[in-house]
Design a protein around this nucleic acid. Sequence first.
DNA 1: TAAACAAGTTTATTTTATAAACCAAATTAT
DNA 2: ATAATTTGGTTTATAAAATAAACTTGTTTA
Lengths: 94, 94
Amino acid sequence: MFKRLDPLLHSELRLAIVSILVNLNEADFVYIKKTTQATSGNLSVQIDKLAEAGYIAVEKVFEGKKPKTICRITEEGLNAFEEYVDAIKSYLQK
Amino acid sequence: MFKRLDPLLHSELRLAIVSILVNLNEADFVYIKKTTQATSGNLSVQIDKLAEAGYIAVEKVFEGKKPKTICRITEEGLNAFEEYVDAIKSYLQK
DNA sequence: TAAACAAGTTTATTTTATAAACCAAATTAT
DNA sequence: ATAATTTGGTTTATAAAATAAACTTGTTTA
């Protein structure tokens, strides 16, 4: 009846991050922060969790003198997202 | 871009409860428990939260000698559900 | 009549989400 | 030149949530 919801994706901010990355193939910290309206601290923590789970890959580079944190979705992350979308739909139908 | 997700509905079990009630117009504790596979304790707590928020109405009756907890969705709950469905869709599109 | 079961509730514990505080380097203002 | 502010974050602390474990009350069943 109801499919289980991956707890890593069933979180407003983490879902937003992954949603961005599924569509964009790469996005940096500043962009994600602006788009999600999250605080830096919260965003930092949630990016770490997604990275630790292998759902996203994080690359830290310098753009001129400024640090830049680039995030990309992984194959695993993409699969998890697709499963999540499928799962949550089982709750949304009337 | 991303709509906010009502925290009361953005919970696996509470969303399942509301999803059942949106479709069924009434369901009792035992039925909801069976359908969601939740533990009694968890279900009891989450039903209380939804009731306190005015999303569902709870009626306690006796069926013969057995207590029965009947739940129904309220107008407010239905609206909240519909908004939630709309909101989460903003995260699911590719 | 003792043990098991049904239908829940209450309490305790673990996890989460989130914000607040902090840090280092760079930029801007004085 | 140097003090103040901004940028791009990280770390730590706190509040809220989810969940399970323990308990309660009444009813069947052995």
